[in-house]
C-alpha cells in the first residue's frame, strides 16, 4: 500500500508552507518521512529524495540523520496529551534536546530550558512538574519549547492545534507564528484548517489521497483555486452569511482507500467536472500559471473558482 505518491514540494528558507488535506491524505506520513521517522516495519520509503540544505536526507547515515533531527529539523506533534514522556519532568525533556545538540551542559542547559519555557509562557516554578500536571494547551507549549530549543532551520507542525480547545487553538497558533519569526525558521504547517493557513503561510499545498493536487502561493490559490477538490474544500468552510439551519456544503463521497485507488485521477469518482479522460489517466502536476501548479486535466477557469 502506498500512502504517499509522486509528491514533489519545495520549501524556501524562512517561508511557511501550509499542507492541507483531509484526514488520511498522507500529510503526517510526509512529515515523518522528512524526519525519517516512519516506523519500519511496517512502513518503508520506497523511493525519491528529500533534499535539505543541499543534502539528501535519504542517503544520510543514521548518525547524520540524528544530527539533523531536533537540531535542524524539529517537529511539533499533533497530540500533546501523548507526545511527552510521562515519567520525565518537562524541564528534563527540554534539557535532553539541548544536551543532544549543543555544548551546553548541566546548569547552563537547565537555564536555557527555563528560558524556552518562559518564551512559551510557562512559569519557571513549574519546570519540575510532570506532563500530567499540565493541561493540553500547556503541554503543547512544552512541545513547542522542545521543538524550538535548538533553533531549527525547519519546523514541522503536525496539526498542532487539532487536539486543543478552540479558545486555546488561536493562542497556540499565535505563539508558533511569533516564535517562527523570532527564530527565523522555515515552517511546514500540516492542518485541515484553510483559515489558519491563510493567516500564517506563504505557500500552500493541497493534498488528496497521497498526492499533491494543487500547489501555489496563498494569494493565487485563495483568489482562484484551480483544482475542483480545492474548490470543494473552500465551499465546505462554513460562512457567517449562510442562512441559519442551512446545510453545510460537502464534497460528495469519501476519500478513496489507499489500498484501492481509482484508475486515473484519484479524485475523479467524486469530481463534478470529471470527463472520460480523468478516469483513464492522471494528469500529473503542471504549471497552469506562473507559480501555480495543479494536477488536473480540466482545471477551473481563472475566475471561475474565485473566493471572496
Amino acid at each position: 500500500m502506498h500512502a504517499v505518491n509522486h509528491l514533489n514540494l519545495t520549501l524556501h528558507r524562512g517561508k511557511a508552507l501550509g499542507f492541507v488535506g483531509e484526514t488520511g491524505a498522507g500529510k503526517t506520513t510526509t512529515a515523518l518521512a522528512i524526519l525519517q521517522l516512519i516506523q519500519t516495519p511496517p512502513g518503508k520509503i520506497t523511493g525519491g529524495s528529500i533534499m535539505f540544505e543541499g543534502h539528501d536526507i535519504m542517503k544520510m547515515t543514521e548518525a547524520e540523520k540524528r544530527q539533523i533531527r531536533g537540531d535542524r529539523i524539529s517537529m511539533i506533534f499533533q497530540d500533546p496529551m501523548t507526545s511527552l514522556n510521562p515519567l520525565k519532568t518537562v524541564e528534563d525533556q527540554i534539557v535532553e534536546m539541548i544536551g543532544l545538540h549543543s555544548a551546553m551542559k548541566g546548569e547552563e542547559a537547565r537555564k536555557r530550558a527555563l528560558e524556552m519555557l518562559a518564551l512559551v509562557g510557562i512559569r519557571p516554578e513549574r519546570s519540575k512538574d510532570y506532563p500530567h500536571q499540565f493541561s493540553g494547551g500547556m503541554r503543547q507549549r512544552v512541545g513547542i519549547a522542545i521543538a524550538l530549543a535548538c533553533e531549527p532551520s525547519l519546523l514541522i507542525a503536525d496539526e498542532p492545534t487539532t487536539a486543543l480547545d478552540v479558545t486555546i487553538q488561536a493562542q497556540v497558533m499565535e505563539l508558533i507564528k511569533k516564535l517562527q519569526s523570532v527564530v527565523n525558521t522555515s515552517f511546514l504547517l500540516i492542518t485541515h484548517d484553510l483559515g489558519i493557513v491563510a493567516e500564517i503561510c506563504d505557500d500552500v499545498a493541497i493534498m488528496y489521497a497521497g498526492r499533491i493536487v494543487e500547489y501555489s502561493n496563498i494569494r493565487q490559490l485563495y483568489s482562484h483555486p484551480l483544482h475542483p477538490y480545492t474548490r470543494g474544500l473552500f465551499d465546505a468552510v462554513p460562512r457567517l452569511d449562510t442562512r441559519l439551519g442551512g446545510k453545510l456544503s460537502v464534497i460528495p463521497g469519501l476519500p478513496p482507500d489507499p489500498i484501492d485507488l481509482p484508475k486515473g485521477c484519484a479524485f475523479s469518482p467524486r469530481c463534478p467536472k470529471a470527463r472520460p479522460l480523468c478516469h483513464e489517466r492522471e494528469c500529473g502536476m503542471r504549471e497552469y500559471e506562473p507559480g501555480h501548479f495543479v494536477n488536473c486535466h480540466f482545471p477551473l477557469e481563472l475566475g471561475e473558482g474565485g473566493v471572496q
Binding site: I68, G70, T82, N85, E96, L100, I146
Partner: peptide, 16 residues
C-alpha cells in the same frame, strides 16, 4: 515503543 513520546524522543535526534 509505538507511543507518541517515543517518536518525540526519536525526533529529538536521540540515539536509539
Amino acid at each position: 515503543i509505538r507511543s507518541d513520546y517515543i517518536r518525540t524522543a526519536r525526533a529529538k535526534g536521540q540515539k536509539e
